[in-house]
Amino acid sequence: MTYCVGMVLDRGLVFMSDTRTNAGLDNISTFRKMTVWEQPGERVITLMAAGNLATTQAVVSLLDERSKSPEHREPSLLAVPSMFQAARMVAETLREVIDQHGDGGLRSDSTFHATLVIGGQIAGSPPRLFMIYPEGNFIESGQDTPFFQIGETKYGRPILVRAYDPAMSFEAAMKLLVVSFDSTLKANLTVGPPFDFHFYEADSLRVGHRGRIEPEDPYFQQVSKGWGDALKEALEILPDYRFGE
């Protein structure tokens, strides 16, 4: 399983993904699920993937190879004129890969299914964020959907819904995401660190704060313990239920 989050803030775009994959309790591995393409001063595009690992790796490999083709002779993320066209290209590539490996390839319950989040900015347009479904269709974030989750979404969603604020700083967004990921891995062993992140500053057109949070990271450990302690204290503050005589 996987957990990835993409958020739109006034300041820019925020991405975080876990790295755990498993094919059973005794077959757990670590794979990067976030890919970033950059042409400094012209465009920055980030892609996160959840689902069948062979499918997602094939999609990323095709997109990467085409972006490196001489003079972009093949359709490329580094040549499309807008983020909408970038999302459309990724969706078509996903359909192409599923069609090659599946029977018909357009069923969301296919063995080869995958869900993707793509976001970024191309010069002349604002930052944009999209979620691409296994069938190849996609939606864009907006005021009612300012963040997207893919993979194991339910455990980390409550804190996002309650605490997300588009005006929040990158530092506050990092804290929010760490709590969301910590809540998810506590409830589901198929999600786990390290966590990759990319914080893109709007209109910079350059890769922003990017890195990896390891399990032993002091900040991660501090937030994880602090959040657990805060929940216990909050529960104790709430009034006890009173049974009738």
Rank of each mutant, 00 (worst) to 15 (best):
Met1Tyr: 06
Tyr3Asp: 07
Gly6Cys: 06
Val8Gly: 02
Asp10Asn: 15
Asp10Cys: 13
Leu13Cys: 04
Leu13Thr: 04
Val14Gln: 00
Val14Ile: 09
Phe15Cys: 08
Met16Ser: 01
Asp18Asn: 02
Thr19Val: 00
Thr19Asn: 03
Asn22His: 12
Ala23Gly: 11
Ser29Asn: 14
Thr30Ser: 14
Thr30Lys: 13
Lys33Pro: 03
Met34Asn: 02
Thr35Tyr: 08
Thr35Ala: 12
Glu38Ala: 09
Pro40Trp: 04
Gly41Trp: 03
Glu42Cys: 14
Glu42Asp: 14
Val44Ser: 03
Ile45Trp: 02
Ile45Tyr: 05
Thr46Lys: 04
Asn52His: 09
Leu53His: 08
Ala58Asn: 06
Ser61Pro: 05
Glu65Ala: 14
Arg66Asp: 10
Ser67Val: 09
Ser69Lys: 10
Glu71Tyr: 12
His72Trp: 14
Arg73Ser: 15
Arg73Glu: 12
Leu77Glu: 05
Leu78Met: 15
Val80Gln: 06
Ser82Asn: 06
Met83Ile: 07
Ala86Val: 06
Ala87Ser: 13
Met89Ala: 07
Ala91Arg: 00
Glu92His: 10
Arg95Cys: 11
Arg95Trp: 04
Glu96Gly: 00
Ile98Ala: 00
Ile98Val: 13
Asp99Leu: 02
Asp103Met: 07
Leu106Ala: 10
Arg107Pro: 02
Ser108Ile: 15
Asp109Gly: 10
Ser110Met: 04
Ser110Leu: 04
Ser110Thr: 02
Ser110Cys: 09
Phe112Glu: 00
Ala114Gln: 03
Thr115Cys: 13
Leu116Gly: 00
Leu116His: 01
Ile118Asp: 00
Gly119Asp: 01
Gly119Leu: 09
Gly120Met: 02
Ile122Pro: 00
Ile122Val: 12
Ala123Pro: 08
Gly124Lys: 02
Ser125Pro: 09
Met131Lys: 14
Ile132Thr: 01
Gly136His: 00
Phe138Gln: 04
Ile139Lys: 11
Ser141Gly: 09
Gly142Thr: 08
Asp144Tyr: 12
Thr153Arg: 06
Lys154Glu: 14
Lys154Thr: 10
Tyr155Pro: 01
Tyr155Thr: 08
Gly156His: 01
Pro158Arg: 05
Ile159Met: 04
Leu160Arg: 01
Val161Met: 12
Ala167Glu: 14
Met168Phe: 01
Ser169Arg: 10
Phe170Ile: 10
Phe170His: 04
Glu171Ala: 15
Ala173Ser: 08
Leu176Asn: 03
Val179Leu: 05
Ser183Arg: 07
Leu185Gln: 12
Lys186Ser: 07
Lys186Gly: 00
Lys186Glu: 06
Val191Phe: 03
Phe195Thr: 05
Tyr200Gly: 03
Asp203Gln: 06
Leu205Asp: 02
Arg206Tyr: 08
Arg206Lys: 15
Gly208Phe: 02
His209Ala: 14
Arg210Ala: 12
Glu214Asp: 11
Asp217Leu: 05
Asp217Tyr: 05
Pro218Gln: 03
Lys225Ala: 13
Gly228Gln: 10
Asp229Val: 11
Ala230Met: 06
Leu231Tyr: 04
Leu231Ile: 12
Lys232Tyr: 11
Lys232Cys: 09
Ala234Asn: 11
Leu238Arg: 12
Pro239His: 05
Pro239Ile: 06
Tyr241Ser: 10
Gly244Leu: 14
Gly244Trp: 11
